[in-house]
């Protein structure tokens, strides 16, 4: 390639990288600019004393606290439900699956990844109606149904990242423990999974983000504008993305709108905290898994 071509490719690459940073920066600055003014204890806890709210002594009626708790619970329950299935399926695809069975499972995994979230929401909604009719009158769209639906939504991420992380381990490293008399499962759990943990955690982080931001699924499966703290897994709940959605379409004054922006900042903050937690857990896990044996 001639010199001019090389310079323009380099320039273009830089420009693309820069636009990514600029886009992210713009969104954050915009959010902070619009929402920072609304970030105070009043926004989160309303007229209730913060300590009373945190210790669950008094309910919060006009603050974001129930939505924050709802979102955190939703994310954690969804990821905890999806994780074992996603890990196991990823291990199957990377280590056990061969030939046609593997191809078919991979195809299903890709199709699941392509299903629009509103369809997953509709499925969850139908499921809750089915359960209501045939299992128990007490089952309505609720936290548990939402979490189950969301776990469907993030399953493909977990499966794929687990599979790819395992498949990327070079073949010499796969043979080390086997040559020392490790069984297949011992090799997977003592050597391969610890090696693949970084990749697996990146899948968990993607899933956390997806669960925290998704609105379509929870709208159909149990989130409401006013529920207070969820009383049980089978109760209705509030969540930040839904709050942001309805406040932005139905706000009555500027203060309410600012509260919506504040909710958005908090949502980003929750994601950040959960990401850091995922990394922390990963490091502890590496220690436990690698240094136990």
């Amino acid at each position: 390639m001639n010199r001019l071509g090389e310079i323009s490719v380099t320039f273009f690459s830089w420009l693309c990288a820069l636009s990514l940073v600029a886009a992210l920066g713009t969104v954050f600055v915009f959010l902070l600019f619009k929402g920072l003014g609304g970030m105070n204890l009043q926004t989160i806890f309303g007229d209730t004393n913060a300590w009373d709210a945190l210790t669950l002594r008094k309910a919060v009626f006009n603050g974001l606290f129930p939505a924050i708790v709802g979102t955190i619970l939703l994310v954690i329950i969804s990821v905890v439900m999806a994780l074992p299935v996603g890990l196991a399926a990823g291990i199957y695809l990377a280590e056990y699956g061969t030939g046609r069975a593997k191809n078919i499972f991979s195809l299903f995994c890709d199709i699941l990844a392509g299903v629009p979230s509103i369809l997953v929401g509709l499925f969850g909604f139908s499921l809750s109606i089915f359960l209501h009719k045939y299992i128990s009158q007490n089952i309505y769209p609720c936290l548990l149904i939402s979490a189950a639906s969301l776990s469907f939504l993030v399953l493909p991420y977990l499966i794929r990242t687990t599979q790819i992380a395992l498949e990327q381990i070079p073949s010499e490293d796969r043979l080390t423990a086997l040559a020392l008399g490790a069984g297949r499962l011992q090799n997977i759990f003592y050597v391969l999974i610890p090696r693949a943990l970084s990749g697996i955690v990146s899948g968990v982080i993607l899933s956390i983000g997806r669960c925290a931001e998704d609105t379509a699924v929870i709208m159909l499966t149990g989130v409401v504008a006013m529920a207070g703290l969820p009383q049980s897994m089978l109760a209705k709940y509030e969540a930040l993305p839904f709050f942001i959605y309805y406040i932005s379409s139905q706000y009555t004054d500027m203060q309410e709108l600012q509260m919506g922006y504040a909710a958005a900042i908090i949502l980003v903050g929750i994601c950040a905290v959960l990401f850091v937690a995922a990394f922390f857990i990963k490091n502890r896990l590496v220690e436990r898994m690698l240094f136990r044996i």
Binding site: E172, A179, L180, A182, Y190, L290, I293
Partner: peptide, 26 residues
């Protein structure tokens, strides 16, 4: 039937843990 490879392949853990690894596997 033990095997030693061309490229040395210690596991990413301490010297002691590496040595104890086959025993623990057994």
């Amino acid at each position: 039937v033990g095997m030693v490879f061309q490229k040395s392949n210690p596991l990413p853990m301490s010297i002691y843990k590496n040595m104890a690894f086959p025993l623990k596997l057994a």
